[in-house]
Amino acid sequence: MQRVNMIMAESPGLITICLLGYLLSAECTVFLDHENANKILNRPKRYNSGKLEEFVQGNLERECMEEKCSFEEAREVFENTERTTEFWKQYVDGDQCESNPCLNGGSCKDDINSYECWCPFGFEGKNCELDVTCNIKNGRCEQFCKNSADNKVVCSCTEGYRLAENQKSCEPAVPFPCGRVSVSQTSKLTRAETVFPDVDYVNSTEAETILDNITQSTQSFNDFTRVVGGEDAKPGQFPWQVVLNGKVDAFCGGSIVNEKWIVTAAHCVETGVKITVVAGEHNIEETEHTEQKRNVIRIIPHHNYNAAINKYNHDIALLELDEPLVLNSYVTPICIADKEYTNIFLKFGSGYVSGWGRVFHKGRSALVLQYLRVPLVDRATCLRSTKFTIYNNMFCAGFHEGGRDSCQGDSGGPHVTEVEGTSFLTGIISWGEECAMKGKYGIYTKVSRYVNWIKEKTKLT
């Protein structure tokens, strides 16, 4: 034993070699072989497995989906700052455009905790909710729209109204504003409101030439003092309507412009014939205590009207009353817009006519005020429907199939267009061939041609 100890002390290297040989010859039971080890760690190889990531292109799944990435790591994937920024906006807080917040056709661009709407022409605001041009839906104005110097929408209202708090709607500024039905039992019968379409306001006024200088022999019209197929109006439903009495009662109609003036057809009036105007009328054979009678003290036909040349060209006249009318729910003026808007309103496509005229061709006159909704007829169809001249200051309205029309005794009465609950004068009943005849239409004086003249002559002093 002493000898062994001496050998170990003198030859430590020998001992180490012996131990190493023993270990190498022993069977290893701690580690699995290569094949079995792979069965336990069965993990798919990654895209760049075996390579240094710093030297390969980034992978979106590896960089940002398996674990949260930084902007720089995302930049490695896209290799483009702009594309990385677009991805980053949604990656950080989701897609803010998912709810489609942009209105009126706006395009949404996502941002971090926010979004941006790219608005089409005519709109602005956070969600493109603000109209900035009158060309689109009248700028959301209830009545009139004008573009300011910086191309912003400025709404306005006709006389007797003021802008509401929203700067879009119009509200009454006087007790009985024009064009409004205020009798409670008839307010439910107000005709369907007309909503502004998209309009090209630059070209809204037709490029028409008034044929002022045409000389033409007097034409022989049949029954051209021209509501057939209409309905009984309720008291106060058309408070701007008046009836004219002269040699015979209810020979023509008219509309209240203001307390002192009536507008009617020029062919209705004769110099030297006494005319009485009755406002607030409903049943011409009954006294309903809503009527107001006034005498006409002055007749002003349009300066281009000449019955000797043509009885229905420039067929418009103004009547001055001896005493002002007292405005109330049964006696209310009709609204008159400017030339541009009167023309736009007419193009809405349908209007209402009213009167006490004959209820059928050569038949009896109506006792109760009649009204009828009539569609506008395109000019080409209008011209083809008659052998008589249709001037540019006239328009056609009615039904091709016949059966409904204005008729004798309705002449001078109103053709009105309702705009968001307020009625505007767009025409004056003038003439036609018979009444409600198939293929024939009622012919009306186009008020847009005469609004400046009306307003100039009827100013209240």
Rank of each mutant, 00 (worst) to 15 (best):
G272A: 10
C117I: 01
N80V: 05
T461S: 14
I316G: 00
G254C: 02
P414W: 04
K146D: 13
E418M: 12
Q237L: 09
N147W: 13
A308T: 14
C108F: 02
I429Y: 15
D212H: 11
G21W: 08
Y391T: 12
L369D: 04
N100L: 10
Q370K: 11
V269E: 02
V263W: 01
L319A: 05
M437T: 14
L319D: 00
G432W: 05
I262A: 03
V199I: 13
F388V: 14
L163H: 02
M65V: 10
D95V: 08
M437K: 11
D200Q: 09
E76R: 02
F55G: 06
E73P: 02
I316E: 00
P120C: 04
E320H: 03
S350N: 15
K109M: 10
K293T: 11
V269K: 02
C268S: 01
P12G: 13
I300K: 03
A164S: 07
E286N: 09
E208N: 14
C170E: 01
V368E: 09
S114M: 06
A436V: 07
H314A: 06
N295P: 04
N213V: 08
S217E: 12
P101L: 05
T287S: 13
A9G: 13
V174C: 05
W356V: 07
G413L: 06
N5T: 13
V374W: 04
R449N: 15
G402T: 09
Q185F: 14
N151P: 09
V248T: 14
T445S: 05
Q237F: 09
E281G: 11
F388Q: 15
H303Q: 11
T225W: 11
T264D: 00
G21I: 13
C102V: 02
Y444Q: 01
I214W: 07
L346R: 04
T194S: 13
E420R: 12
L60K: 04
Q167C: 07
S114Y: 11
C155E: 01
E456H: 08
A233K: 05
T225V: 12
C435P: 04
A250Y: 07
A26W: 02
D405M: 14
N328P: 00
K126I: 14
K126R: 13
F71N: 03
G355Y: 15
A26Q: 02
S423I: 05
E116Y: 10
Q90A: 12
R180C: 03
I284R: 13
A380G: 12
Q241F: 15
C108R: 03
I309W: 07
K260M: 06
I334R: 00
S70F: 03
I344H: 15
K438V: 08
R43L: 02
W261A: 01
S99M: 11
T84F: 05
E456T: 11
S99L: 12
G272N: 12
K438C: 07
F31C: 07
Y115I: 04
V199R: 13
V92G: 12
S329Q: 08
T389Q: 15
Y115R: 04
T209L: 14
T461K: 09
E79R: 06
L318V: 07
T215P: 09
M6P: 06
F31I: 14
P235N: 05
R379W: 09
L24R: 04
G427E: 01
F360T: 15
S255L: 04
Y115S: 04
N452A: 12
S329G: 14
P101E: 04
F176W: 07
G351R: 02
W88V: 04
V368H: 11
D33M: 12
E418Q: 12
P324N: 05
V242E: 01
E72T: 05
G357Y: 14
A26D: 03
Y312Q: 06
I214D: 08
Q2R: 15
G442K: 08
G432Q: 10
H34A: 13
D410N: 10
H361F: 08
I454A: 01
F78T: 03
M394R: 03
E193Q: 05
N151A: 08
H361S: 15
P239W: 01
K260D: 03
Q96K: 13
S114N: 10
V243S: 12
D198P: 11
H361L: 11
D322Y: 03
C407P: 05
G105C: 03
S184R: 10
A279R: 00
R379C: 07
T209M: 14
T422G: 02
R364G: 10
D212Q: 11
S204D: 13
S406F: 15
D232K: 14
H267N: 05
C396G: 01
S350F: 12
V181S: 10
D150Y: 08
N38D: 15
T332I: 09
F348W: 10
E76K: 02
K459E: 12
G125N: 03
I256H: 00
P414D: 04
G125T: 03
C97A: 03
L32H: 13
C407Q: 04
W261Q: 01
E323N: 10
C435F: 03
D33H: 10
L60R: 02
Q216H: 12
G253W: 10
L19P: 02
S385D: 14
M8K: 13
Y371W: 15
C97I: 03
T332N: 04
T209S: 12
F121W: 10
V56A: 11
C335W: 00
G351N: 06
N36I: 10
L14Y: 11
I262P: 00
F388G: 08
D93Q: 13
E418K: 08
Q241P: 01
T458Y: 01
K274N: 15
A436M: 15
S25C: 14
P324F: 04
M437S: 14
H314S: 05
D232Q: 09
Y391P: 15
N304A: 10
T218S: 12
H400A: 12
N104G: 04
G122D: 09
I210V: 12
L52Y: 06
M6Q: 09
A380I: 10
L327F: 15
Q2F: 08
R62Q: 06
G363E: 12
M65A: 07
H34C: 06
L367N: 14
L211T: 13
A164C: 05
E67V: 00
C170D: 01
E208M: 10
N135C: 05
K260S: 02
S350C: 06
S385R: 12
E159I: 08
K89S: 12
F176D: 03
I262N: 00
S182I: 08
G179W: 00
G355V: 08
Y391Q: 15
T85I: 10
M65G: 04
V154Q: 14
D131I: 10
K247C: 05
K459N: 15
Y47A: 14
P177N: 01
S11R: 14
T389N: 15
E35A: 12
R191E: 15
K168M: 13
L383D: 07
T287Q: 14
F31M: 13
K455P: 01
I136D: 14
C97R: 03
Y305H: 06
V195L: 14
E72P: 05
G58V: 02
R226Q: 15
E73F: 00
G280E: 01
S329Y: 06
F55S: 14
E270M: 07
A337V: 03
W261Y: 08
G21L: 13
S365R: 14
G106D: 03
S430T: 12
G122T: 05
Q241V: 10
L369M: 15
E320Q: 06
